[in-house]
Design a protein around this nucleic acid. Structure first.
Lengths: 235, 235
DNA sequence: CAGCAAATTTGCAGCTACTGCAAATTAGAG
DNA sequence: CTCTAATTTGCAGTAGCTGCAAATTTGCTG
């Protein structure tokens, strides 16, 4: 609470340690869930596996689920946001979809953790739902960006307040619709339905690449389908 | 488990009683939540208020939340579905949106219960989210309907399998997008954000009408906005 | 390095949602 | 009325999660 006087000088160790522990716990959680399934993993198991007390666990994560899908929710990258607003083309929808797809782990990119989570999402639809849910929390932020982009080529001086309100509504509606499309894409991307696979400690698997590639593919396919769908006459 | 031989003759009392109890519990739950807020209502409170044991409560409802937002999830009305497929006009999106908006309580329409729940949704965004979540469970069903409607005016004989698959994809994508729009509409409709209102046992209030009306209004506005948005050139 | 203050971790006690099981109660059929 | 099957209930237990205060660690300062 007291303002951090030495923040900019050396905010090291303390923060770093926290981050490290956090990561360690998340890894343990993910491993355990992959091995035993969500329901068969207790918080205690995660704690002993990662060497912290249960109480500390709940100091780090609000819920058991949070430890599995990641402590901090996905965020829009600052740079991507800027890029999106000023993007050259006229492809609003594809660009927005790409922007949202890019919402990844805010921390350093831990490849293993990332792919493991993808796998978990495939095995536990409830967790995928939760993650998508968390993604839609940035609705307002995305809507603001869409709003700004919609404003391109509009003379903001001669514009009435009504125009602005209207465009704001458009932006929000578009964003919600796009979130729906994002869900569609995610469901296409991740092999969700009941899979018989269980108990497979795939720690050093050599083939996590396809998932990543498929993300781009899924995005591409979705955009294509979206375009073809928008051209339906009756709509 | 044993097949009910006298089902058609007199399936009365037993089933009826169950339904009655269910309704009574839901009413208690809703009242209590309106009075004390979600977090301050325990399952025990609901039980004593409705005169059943806790164990019985969980025989009726899977979760505490289920008792509050309703035991059975919203469903697509059979008649509405048929109507939707064969609807005269060319307004696919508006019709589909109307179809989804019509997802109401499957049981008899208890006006008071209904409006109380709307109020609860406004006070507890989490519960609204859950309800919207439950609505999106009918995705597949709606997508099938959209698929069928998209098939209108198509010669299904000369159509290739690829065409069908393609149209199926379109239907699914459209449905997901529309679910997003439905969310948008719901959020517009329900005064969601932090409201200071607490502790108000509005049992005999004379003004539950506006809510209902606003649903139609919200639908109308959303459809209008949707149309105006779809006509954006760059889209 | 000693020593101090603040932050972090931990143990513990407790609450609440939820489940399995077996006994008790109730309802419907003959 | 009686028997059988369904429903309800009590009880004991599991697991997620929280508040609180003690114990420990951390980082700084003299």
């Amino acid at each position: 609470m007291i303002d951090t006087p030495t923040t900019s000088t050396r905010p090291r160790s303390r923060e770093d340690k926290h981050h490290a522990t956090s990561l360690r716990v998340e890894r343990s959680a993910v491993s355990l869930v992959l091995e035993h399934g969500f329901d068969n993993v207790t918080v205690d198991m995660i704690c002993t596996a990662s060497g912290i007390s249960q109480r500390t666990f709940f100091n780090y994560f609000k819920t058991k689920t949070a430890a599995i899908i990641g402590a901090e929710p996905p965020t829009i990258d600052e740079a991507s946001a800027r890029e999106f607003i000023a993007a050259p083309g006229d492809d609003l929808l594809p660009d927005a979809l790409a922007l949202m797809s890019a919402m990844g782990p805010p921390d350093g990119i831990d490849e293993q953790l990332f792919t493991d989570r993808i796998q978990i999402f495939g095995l536990h639809p409830q967790l995928l739902q939760e993650q998508l849910e968390r993604m839609s929390r940035v609705t307002d932020e995305v809507a603001e960006l869409v709003y700004l982009r919609l404003a391109r080529g509009v003379d903001t001086d001669t514009e009435t307040d009504a125009d602005r309100v209207f465009r704001h509504g458009q932006a929000e509606l578009l964003t919600h619709a796009l979130l729906g499309v994002l869900r569609f894409m995610a469901l296409q991307w991740i092999p969700c339905p009941q899979f018989g696979a269980t108990a497979d400690t795939s720690q050093e698997d050599g083939r996590e690449r396809p998932t990543r590639l498929t993300l781009a593919e899924a995005l591409d396919r979705t955009v294509t389908l979206l375009r073809q769908t928008l051209s339906i006459p009756g709509l």
